[in-house]
C-alpha cells in the first residue's frame, strides 16, 4: 500500500468525525463511544482523560486503526480506515503508528535491542541499519547499558522505556500510548511523561490515554471523556 506523500505531509495526522463504537454482549449492547469528533496534529501532545471505562482505550484503538468504528469516520494519514483492507491497515500501522501499552507487551524471549528492532525487522529494514537505529533509540531513552537484557531483567520503568523506543522504530507520525504509567510508580511515571513529551520535537503527534491527572496536566491539550463522549 502506498501512502500519498501529500497526505503524509498534512499537519493533521489522524481525525475522527462523529465516531461511535458499540459492542454487542450477551446482556445487551455496550456503547463504548458515542459521537466523538477530534483532530490530532503533528507535534502536539494530546491527552484523553477520564475514569475507567469511559472509552479512552477504544478511542485510541480507533485512531490507530487497530479497530474500526461502528459509525462515523476515522481518517489516518488521509486514509479512511474503514476503506482499507486488514493487510493495508496493518502496513499503515507498521510504518506510521507507534503503540505504547499499559502492560508493555515486550517479547520475553528477546533482548531490549531485539524488541526495539522488531518493527524494523517486520518492515524489512536491513540488519546493520536496524541494529544501529535500535541502539540509538535505546540510547535516547537512557537504556544504552541494557541492550542485551531481557524484559525479565528490567524494571517496570525500563520496560516502558523499551516499549517507547520500539514505538519509534519505524519513525511514525503518530504515537498512541494507552495508560503508559498505569503500572508504574509516580516518579517513574513522570519520567515516562517527559519522554513522551520529547517525542513532539520530532514532529510526532502523541496521544496518551490516562486517568493520571499529573500526566494529563503536562500535555498540550486535554480531551475529557465520560460515558463514551467528550465532556
Amino acid at each position: 500500500m502506498t501512502i500519498d506523500p501529500g497526505r503524509a505531509g498534512d499537519r493533521v495526522v489522524a481525525s475522527a468525525r462523529g465516531i461511535a463504537k458499540e459492542y454487542r454482549m450477551p446482556g445487551g449492547t455496550v456503547h463504548a463511544l458515542r459521537g466523538v469528533t477530534l483532530d490530532v496534529e503533528r507535534a502536539v501532545y494530546l491527552s484523553v482523560v477520564g475514569p475507567s471505562g469511559c472509552g479512552k482505550s477504544t478511542l485510541l484503538h480507533l485512531l490507530g486503526g487497530v479497530d474500526l468504528p461502528s459509525t462515523g469516520t476515522v481518517t489516518l494519514l488521509g486514509h479512511d480506515t474503514a476503506g482499507l483492507s486488514d493487510a493495508a491497515l496493518a502496513r499503515l500501522r507498521l510504518h506510521h503508528v507507534g503503540f505504547v501499552f499499559q502492560r508493555f507487551f515486550l517479547l520475553q524471549m528477546l533482548t531490549a535491542e531485539e524488541n526495539v528492532g522488531l518493527p524494523m525487522l517486520e518492515a524489512g529494514v536491513p540488519t546493520p541499519e536496524r541494529r544501529a537505529r535500535a541502539r540509538a533509540l535505546l540510547d535516547r531513552v537512557g537504556l544504552s547499558a541494557r541492550l542485551d537484557h531481557r524484559p525479565g531483567q528490567l524494571s517496570g520503568g525500563e520496560m516502558q522505556r523499551v516499549a517507547i523506543a520500539r514505538a519509534l522504530a519505524n519513525r511514525p507520525a503518530l504515537v498512541l500510548a494507552d495508560e503508559p504509567t498505569g503500572e508504574l510508580d509516580e516518579a517513574t511515571g513522570r519520567e515516562i511523561g517527559r519522554l513522551l513529551r520529547s517525542l513532539t520535537q520530532d514532529d510526532i503527534a502523541v496521544v496518551v490515554a490516562t486517568h493520571n491527572p499529573d500526566l494529563a496536566a503536562d500535555t498540550d491539550r486535554q480531551i475529557r471523556m465520560k460515558d463514551g463522549t467528550v465532556a
Binding site: 490507530g64 487497530v66 486488514d86 493487510a87 496493518a90 502496513r91 499503515l92 500501522r93 507498521l94 510504518h95 503508528v97 503503540f99 501499552f101 502492560r103 507487551f105 517479547l107 522488531l118 518493527p119 517486520e122 518492515a123 520500539r166
Partner: peptide, 16 residues
C-alpha cells in the same frame, strides 16, 4: 495472546 495482539497492533498482518 497478548503478544500476538501486540504484534498485530505493531503492523503484522493476519496472514503473517
Amino acid at each position: 495472546v497478548g503478544e500476538i495482539a501486540m504484534l498485530r497492533a505493531l503492523g503484522m498482518t493476519r496472514s503473517r
